[in-house]
């Protein structure tokens, strides 16, 4: 019974998918482009990233000036003075509620993705650039710059976003002051949080363009149903 399940649904056991040479070819043909875990976490992350972005802008608009160091306020020099209006209509209230709810969803989803990605070898197999060069099957694999971009987003940019986010919390830094002192202060952490947001938005924009030009329907189907 277990074997039957495994054969019918190799997608649910990505780690067990490469058992014998005999199975290998068949599984490679039937195996979904993306595992169920990658697909589910991809779309939850998409939603929570959108929530974080919209609410982040709502919060930023309460004070669209960025500083370096520990403190900063109107009347002190800004590092970046965004050409945006100061909106004090209370949108940072729902902005903050939505931001932290989305942050929890993203952090918990990201944790599940990380643990499963390490356990199943997803990062090692699919995202680590190989020395043998790109495979001939362009739909199923990524080129090195793509892989590096994904790795940077997963292992560098998102962890830095969480880190700088926590560094802005007076409660969290009362327990771990180093979280904020390494950046030189609370305002520096806020500024880095903003700058990485820009890089992540750029990443998403390029990501969507690449999906669009490389066969939008097929790519979307692969990320929703698994197979193209």
């Amino acid at each position: 019974m277990i074997a039957a399940t495994g054969m019918a649904e190799p997608a649910y056991f990505p780690a067990a998918a490469v058992h014998t040479a005999k199975h290998k070819r068949r599984i490679k043909l039937n195996a979904p482009r993306h595992s169920i875990l990658v697909r589910v976490t991809h779309w939850i992350t998409t939603l929570s990233f959108l929530g974080l972005l919209v609410s982040g802008v709502a919060i930023l608009l309460a004070h669209p000036r960025l500083y370096w160091g520990e403190t900063g306020t109107a009347g002190t020099p800004a590092l970046i003075d965004l050409p945006l209006p100061f909106l004090l209509g209370g949108q940072s209230g729902w902005g903050r509620y939505l931001h932290f709810l989305s942050a929890w969803v993203l952090v918990l989803t990201g944790f599940a993705y990380m643990v499963s990605g390490l356990a199943t070898g997803h990062f090692y197999r699919n995202l680590l650039p190989s020395r043998t060069g790109p495979s001939e099957d362009a739909f199923r694999t990524y080129r090195a710059p793509q892989k590096l971009a994904y790795l940077a987003v997963v292992f560098l940019l998102f962890p830095l976003m969480i880190w700088t986010g926590l560094a802005m919390s007076p409660a969290v830094t009362s327990v771990f002051p180093e979280l904020v002192t390494v950046f030189g202060g609370q305002q520096s952490a806020r500024t880095i949080h903003f700058l990485i947001t820009n890089i992540l938005v750029l990443f998403v924009a390029v990501h969507i363009v690449m999906v669009a030009v490389s066969g939008f329907i097929r790519r979307m189907r692969a990320m929703i149903r698994g197979n193209a």
Partner: peptide, 30 residues
């Protein structure tokens, strides 16, 4: 989200962690 934040921070700070304190020279002019 609020409950997750409050509960986790309360557990994290259960030993009266102190907010960061600064030197006189760090006092803001504004």
């Amino acid at each position: 989200g609020e409950t997750l934040t409050y509960a986790s921070q309360r557990l994290l700070m259960s030993h009266h962690s102190l907010a960061r304190e600064f030197d006189r020279r760090h006092i803001s002019k504004v």
